[in-house]
Amino acid sequence: MTADVFSFEHVSVGDDAGHWRLHEAVGAIPDCGVTAIVGPSGSGKSTLLRCCNRLEAVSRGVVRFRGVDVATIEPLSLRRRVGMVFQRPTPFAGTGRDNLRVAAPDLSDDQAADLLAEVRLDASFLDRDAMRLSGGEAQRLCLARSLAAEPEVLLMDEVTSSVDPGTRVALEELARTCAGRGVRVLWVTHDFAQARRIAEHALVVLAGRIAHAAAVADLETDAPPDVRAFLREGSDAE
């Protein structure tokens, strides 16, 4: 069990009225480079991701991070170990440097420039107004900002949904680069083709539950009918 980065034990998230965004989700994120969490819009995949850094509270069940119940981990230290990049770019007011220093206040200019280089932005972005960047540039800055905290795991929540195709490819490559350096990446997407491009493993989330989990190459083998139907829709859309 402890070999998994995250495990979900009968996890439900919802309100008292019985509207469940996640319902009895059971599964695990293995300790491998990139794991894709795929599913249609509104299926609960972002909620599952947000349970991993406690931006979302679990109503029932247990989420474990490397075998430890996340509810017992101090949330601020958990979030520094488990970084997150959001669907919409979220630059903060100020320069690129200011943004990086929110995550790492003691960051030197050299270290900041190295971080920008990792996400393929040049050092001039240190002094650029973050609120005036393009969507793609802002999203890269947000990724650099998350990396500044030196996380063990990176949660990436549909990060390519509001960027241009060039940035999408760059972000996919950056996810692979992070994985190559030992950072575990959880990549949420509704696009199965994208999951196939970048992930080794995938969880399929349908209607608030983890419907299937397997190595990406074997995902369609032994998949239940509803998962097959979803994967086929994704393939047809390509």
Binding site: N53, L55, S77, R80, G83, F86, T90, A93, A103, A149
Partner: peptide
């Protein structure tokens, strides 16, 4: 909300995340 949650996700305490 997105910006506040991005600050929280960096490990900032809520008072600091909400400050600006």
């Amino acid at each position: 909300r997105d910006e506040v949650e991005a600050r929280l996700a960096l490990g900032l305490p809520s008072a600091e995340a909400a400050q600006p």
